Amino acid sequence: KYSDMIVAAIQAEKNRAGSSRQSIQKYIKSHYKVGENADSQIKLSIKRLVTTGVLKQTKGVGASGSFRLA
């Protein structure tokens, strides 16, 4: 599940300011076997996790910027 992968990526990075979408994508692609549409799936999952309150956006708008666990 992409949401689990995103949470794992943010936990692994341990950046106080949060993790960027690009760094999350890079982590997921190197640690998991994902399909061609992974980028758009990650983007959608990040937006969903922010609206449900699992992630907090520290910089930027939408799916860009930095995110950390709430």
Rank of each mutant, 00 (worst) to 15 (best):
K1C: 15
K1E: 09
Y2Q: 01
Y2P: 02
Y2G: 00
Y2V: 05
Y2H: 02
Y2N: 00
Y2E: 00
Y2T: 03
S3N: 10
S3W: 06
S3C: 15
S3T: 14
S3F: 14
D4P: 05
D4C: 15
D4G: 07
M5Q: 02
M5F: 05
M5L: 05
M5G: 02
M5E: 00
M5W: 12
I6H: 01
I6R: 00
I6G: 00
I6F: 00
V7H: 03
V7M: 08
A8I: 06
A8T: 07
A8D: 05
A8P: 01
A8C: 13
A9N: 00
I10Y: 00
Q11M: 14
Q11T: 11
A12S: 08
A12H: 09
E13W: 05
E13F: 09
E13G: 10
E13R: 07
E13I: 13
K14M: 08
K14Q: 12
K14Y: 08
K14L: 06
K14S: 10
N15Y: 05
N15L: 06
N15T: 07
N15K: 09
N15G: 08
N15Q: 06
R16H: 10
R16N: 10
R16P: 15
R16V: 11
A17L: 11
A17R: 12
G18S: 04
G18I: 02
G18L: 03
G18H: 04
G18V: 04
S19R: 05
S19N: 02
S20N: 06
S20Q: 04
S20Y: 02
R21D: 07
R21I: 15
R21M: 15
R21V: 15
R21H: 12
R21Q: 13
Q22I: 09
Q22H: 08
Q22K: 09
Q22S: 10
S23P: 15
S23K: 05
S23I: 04
S23L: 03
I24H: 02
I24A: 01
I24L: 02
I24G: 02
I24E: 00
Q25M: 15
Q25H: 09
K26D: 13
K26R: 12
K26H: 10
K26S: 10
Y27H: 03
Y27V: 00
K29S: 06
K29Y: 09
K29Q: 07
K29E: 07
K29R: 07
K29V: 07
K29G: 03
S30I: 09
S30W: 04
S30M: 11
S30Q: 11
H31F: 05
H31G: 01
H31R: 04
H31W: 03
H31K: 04
H31E: 01
Y32V: 02
Y32P: 02
Y32I: 03
Y32G: 02
K33H: 09
V34F: 03
V34H: 02
G35W: 04
G35R: 04
G35V: 04
G35A: 07
E36W: 09
E36K: 15
E36N: 12
N37E: 12
N37K: 08
N37W: 07
A38D: 04
A38W: 06
A38V: 09
D39N: 09
D39L: 07
D39V: 07
S40T: 12
S40L: 13
S40E: 14
Q41C: 15
Q41D: 10
Q41T: 05
Q41A: 11
Q41H: 09
I42L: 04
I42G: 02
I42H: 00
I42E: 00
K43R: 11
K43W: 15
K43C: 13
L44F: 06
L44M: 11
L44Y: 07
L44C: 15
L44N: 10
S45Q: 13
S45F: 09
S45W: 15
I46S: 01
I46K: 03
I46H: 01
I46T: 01
K47G: 06
K47H: 11
K47R: 09
K47Q: 13
K47N: 10
K47D: 13
K47M: 13
R48D: 09
R48W: 15
L49P: 01
L49E: 00
L49V: 00
V50G: 01
V50R: 01
V50F: 02
V50D: 01
V50A: 02
T51W: 10
T51Y: 10
T51K: 14
T52S: 13
T52D: 10
T52W: 07
T52R: 11
G53Y: 02
G53L: 03
G53N: 03
G53D: 02
V54E: 03
V54S: 02
V54R: 05
V54C: 07
V54D: 15
V54K: 05
L55G: 01
L55T: 04
L55E: 00
L55Y: 01
L55A: 01
L55S: 01
L55Q: 02
K56M: 13
K56A: 08
Q57N: 06
Q57V: 14
Q57R: 09
Q57I: 12
Q57A: 09
Q57G: 04
T58Y: 10
T58R: 06
T58V: 13
K59C: 14
K59Q: 08
G60Y: 06
G60D: 05
G60I: 07
G60T: 08
G60A: 08
V61E: 10
V61N: 12
V61A: 10
V61W: 11
V61P: 11
V61H: 12
V61R: 13
G62Q: 05
G62T: 07
G62V: 05
A63Y: 08
A63G: 14
S64W: 08
S64M: 10
S64H: 13
S64A: 10
S64K: 14
S64Y: 10
G65T: 13
G65R: 11
S66H: 13
S66R: 15
S66I: 13
S66N: 13
S66G: 12
F67G: 03
F67L: 10
F67Y: 13
F67K: 03
R68L: 13
R68H: 10
R68P: 03
R68F: 14
L69R: 02
L69K: 03
A70D: 04
A70L: 07
A70V: 08
A70S: 08
